[in-house]
Design a protein around this nucleic acid. Structure first.
Lengths: 139, 139
DNA sequence: TTGGAACCTGGACTTTGTCTAATTGGATTT
DNA sequence: AAATCCAATTAGACAAAGTCCAGGTTCCAA
C-alpha cells in the first residue's frame, strides 16, 4: 500500500478494493503502518494503535498483519528471529539494518540501487525475496 | 569451516587455530555441523549430538553456536523467525528455501550465480549478508 | 593439593507469536 | 424493531525458541 495523505475513509476504500472488510481495527492498523516512513514491529504497532484510541488486542494485530501480508499490503522484514518488522512500502527495495540503533532504513533512501537478483529453478516462484544487510559501525 | 573427512582430531586442530578451546562438546557440535551437506537448526544439532553419544545441554549448543558465529565458523540462515538454520559453509553463497519440504539448498548447488550485491554506506561494514529466496511450488 | 578460570549443566524464565472458546458488531431478514 | 447470522474480535492460556543464572566440573598451573 502506498497512498499519501491517508484518511480513515481512503484507507477503508483501499482495503475494500483488495477484498478486505474494512473494520475499525484494520483501518487503525493500516493508518499506523502508513503514518510515517517507519518499519514497526508487531509490538510497536499494537502500542501505537492503542495510544491513538482504539482498544485492539494482540491477536487482532497478528491476524491483521497476516491478512495484510497475504493480500500483499505489507512486507515482513526479518532481521533476526526476534526482530521482525513490517513495511507498508511493498515496491521492490532493500534495507540496511543498523545493529547499534536497531533501526531500519531503505537502501533506496541511502542512494543505492540493486541489480542482478538470481533466477529461480523451474517450477518455483518467489513467495518473498529480501536482502537485509546487517551493519555495525566502523570495523 | 570447510574441511573434508573430519576426524575428532582434525576438528580440534581447526578450532585451536581459530582460538577456540576444543572441548569435547564443541568438537561434537562441529562434527555434527560438518558430517553432511545439511543446514540443521539448533534443535536438530542438539538431537544429533546427543544421539552420537555425548550428553550436551541446550545452553551449551546455543553458547557454542554463538561462539562459532562470532569466530566466523558458521553462518546463520534466518528463513523465518521460527526457522533458523546453521551452515558450516561460510563461503559467499545463497539459498533456496522450499516452503513445502522445509528444506534449504544452496543456490550454487542449483547452478546459479549471484552478482550485484549493494555497496554499503561509508563507515559501515557488513555483519552478515544473505539472500533467502522463499519458494512455493507451481504458481 | 590447592586455586582459579573456563566451561558445562538443569531448570527457571522471557519473549514472541499462536490457539481457542466466548463475545461482539453490524448487516440482513422477518 | 426483533431475530438471526457470521465474520471479526477478545482475553488469556498456551507453545516454541532462546536466554539467564547459580552451582558443579574439569583442567591446568603453581
Amino acid at each position: 500500500m502506498n497512498l499519501e495523505p491517508s484518511t480513515r475513509e481512503s484507507v477503508a476504500e483501499m482495503l475494500r478494493t483488495r477484498g478486505i472488510t474494512p473494520t475499525h481495527q484494520r483501518i487503525e492498523i493500516a493508518l499506523v503502518l502508513l503514518e510515517k516512513r517507519w518499519h514497526p514491529s508487531a509490538d510497536q504497532i499494537l502500542a501505537a494503535v492503542n495510544v491513538r484510541c482504539a482498544e485492539t488486542s494482540k491477536a487482532t494485530v497478528y491476524n491483521t498483519l497476516k491478512l495484510f501480508l497475504d493480500k500483499g499490503l505489507v512486507r515482513e522484514l526479518i532481521v533476526d528471529p526476534n526482530k521482525v518488522f513490517y513495511d507498508s512500502n511493498t515496491s521492490v527495495h532493500h534495507h540496511f539494518y543498523d545493529v547499534v540503533s536497531g533501526e531500519i532504513t531503505d537502501i533506496a533512501a541511502a542512494g543505492v540501487r540493486v541489480d542482478g537478483l538470481p533466477p529461480l529453478p523451474a517450477g518455483m516462484v518467489p513467495a518473498g525475496i529480501d536482502i537485509i544487510v546487517r551493519t555495525r559501525p566502523g570495523l
